[in-house]
Design a protein around this nucleic acid. Structure first.
Lengths: 214, 214
DNA sequence: GTCTATAGGTAGATAGAC
DNA sequence: GTCTATCTACCTATAGAC
């Protein structure tokens, strides 16, 4: 009704999407560094290079922005779950899984840190849907590992604890913005660091899974 | 001058220490759940069951309390570093290391979460002394693993990445207050869960370190 | 759609009686 | 040492002009 011309409407939509992206990107960075309560709407607006009122125009509340950031990370994790397949070779799958998880830590470090901080804090902002989804993801992975054990393709380890070890190690590299400086003595993680991380996990965690030859 | 009697002075000192302990304990819990900026001095006072002004009497600022909490965790970590000894058997040492770290996650979950959140956030509140100490701890552990490799007692893995895997997996169980519900499907971690965690890490990560028998 | 000004509430910290 | 009352500053969110 109000917008009669197509091109301006198109353009407005582009500006809209662009502004939303910029807000989310800025918010993710600040949530990761300051936590939910420590994040100031003014800080998000400044980093997104928009007036504070415009941020409120696109997202009604700080909680709305935070939810959008968490939701995006949930979507990212969803990608990794398809890698584990009970009918495929465990070691091929697990190496691929490690690779995918490390790539995610490389590509979405801020998102990962927001989600991790949220979980450490007790998941107070996670919706029931997100919790259900995360539980479902965990369950699916556990069932795959159990299937491999039943088939005698890997040693009978405790699936949940094994997945915790795998998950926490790969997740660590997302936090590494800071810890890297301490543990790896580098300013910034490079591709070679992620490669070495994958190789090391394959050589230790995954190697320990191989059935005894003796 | 003002306190002439010894017993009252003694008693006052006890009350003082007791109040300081209660403030730190309450603060640790809330910092872990809300982060530095999300923590309200009023909330610490309420949980410690003291008027807010009394909290300010013992600690001048919120930052002072936070520093004391971080410092305590640094002290806890210091205990774990003595376990790794280049002259002892790597597997005995590493199993003991896993056990000690898991016990710390069990006994000081809130402290661990405060420290981890702080690190994920970029370590803005860590003093140069703390950073230096953490770097020194990492270095010492790396040198021990390197020594074992040089002696041919474990396979030549990348020491830094191997320690990251070990550290992050054990650390995970401190965050588990929440994630346990999702991944392990329990309300609360029991001793048996920590035992299983240790066994699983020994069976995978550490087993993968053993030199080839073939 | 954009932005200034501001309302309404709450935080960290302190003053000062007891 | 303890505690009430309060100051100042700042934060989320909104009203309303453009």
């Amino acid at each position: 009704m109000t917008t009669t011309e197509s091109p301006p409407g198109q353009k407005a939509l582009n500006i809209r999407n662009q502004n939303i992206s910029r807000i989310l990107e800025a918010a993710t960075e600040i949530f990761a560094r300051k936590g939910y309560d420590g994040t100031r709407m003014a800080a998000i607006a400044e980093l997104a290079d928009l007036p504070k009122a415009n941020v409120y125009y696109y997202f009604g509340t700080k909680e709305d922005i935070y939810q959008a950031v968490l939701q995006r990370m949930v979507g990212i994790w969803e990608e990794a779950i398809s890698v584990l397949d009970p009918n495929k070779d465990p070691f091929t799958c697990l190496e691929e899984y490690v690779r995918v998880k490390l790539n995610q830590s490389r590509d979405y470090p801020a998102e990962a840190r927001v989600m991790l901080t949220e979980m450490i804090a007790g998941g107070q902002h996670l919706t029931p849907e997100m919790n259900a989804f995360l539980r479902e993801v965990a369950m699916r992975q556990i069932r795959v590992v159990e299937a491999w054990i039943d088939q005698g393709r890997i040693r009978p380890v405790h699936p949940r604890h094994f997945l915790i070890a795998l998950w926490s190690a790969t997740q660590f590299y997302a936090e590494c913005d800071t810890l890297a400086a301490t543990v790896l003595e580098v300013d910034k993680l490079r591709q070679s660091d992620f490669d070495t991380a994958g190789d090391t996990l394959a050589a230790t965690l995954l190697r320990g899974l191989r059935p005894d030859s003796a």
